[in-house]
């Protein structure tokens, strides 16, 4: 591993958020956790540059995960994006360019693998 990449995990369900985060940390990543888009944007604006955004689509709050993903694509074009949802698979055209979709439920291994693939 070249350096410790920072992954921002956004997921409203704390149990899942922390489980994923723990797995990613275990895999060697630096992880930020957010339960909604507002918190995620705050973390993105901090000094620690985020290499990858892993966000759930279905979240309460002013913006859902898809909105967040698009905003990140616009404002931080270098950030890799993985979008996940338990609902129907979204239209690929609705996803930000270069992003990837991971359907719920996923295993921790699958998440780590997807993140690793995007950051390779």
């Amino acid at each position: 591993m070249r350096e410790r990449e920072t992954v921002l995990v956004v997921e409203d369900e704390a149990l899942i958020l922390f489980t994923i985060s723990d797995e990613l940390r275990h895999a060697g990543y630096h992880v930020h956790e957010a339960q909604d888009a507002d918190e995620a944007l705050r973390l993105l604006a901090s000094d620690d540059p985020v290499g990858l955004l892993f966000t759930d689509i279905d979240m309460p709050g002013s913006m859902d995960g898809l909105g967040l993903a698009h905003m990140v694509r616009d404002r931080w074009p270098l950030v890799r994006i993985i979008v996940t949802s338990g609902k129907a698979v979204p239209d690929p055209a609705a996803l930000p360019e270069g992003s990837r979709f991971l359907a719920k439920p996923y295993t921790s291994g699958a998440v780590v693998e997807a993140v690793r693939g995007m950051l390779a």
């Binding site: 369900e13 149990l15 899942i16 489980t19 797995e23 279905d58 338990g86 439920p105 996923y106």
Partner: peptide, 21 residues
């Protein structure tokens, strides 16, 4: 049906997290 599918997937995600932990 959509709601149920979603819920089941979320439950599975939760169960998956519990299992993982």
């Amino acid at each position: 049906t959509h709601e149920l599918a979603h819920r089941i997937k979320n439950i599975l995600a939760t169960v998956s997290a519990i299992a993982s932990q």
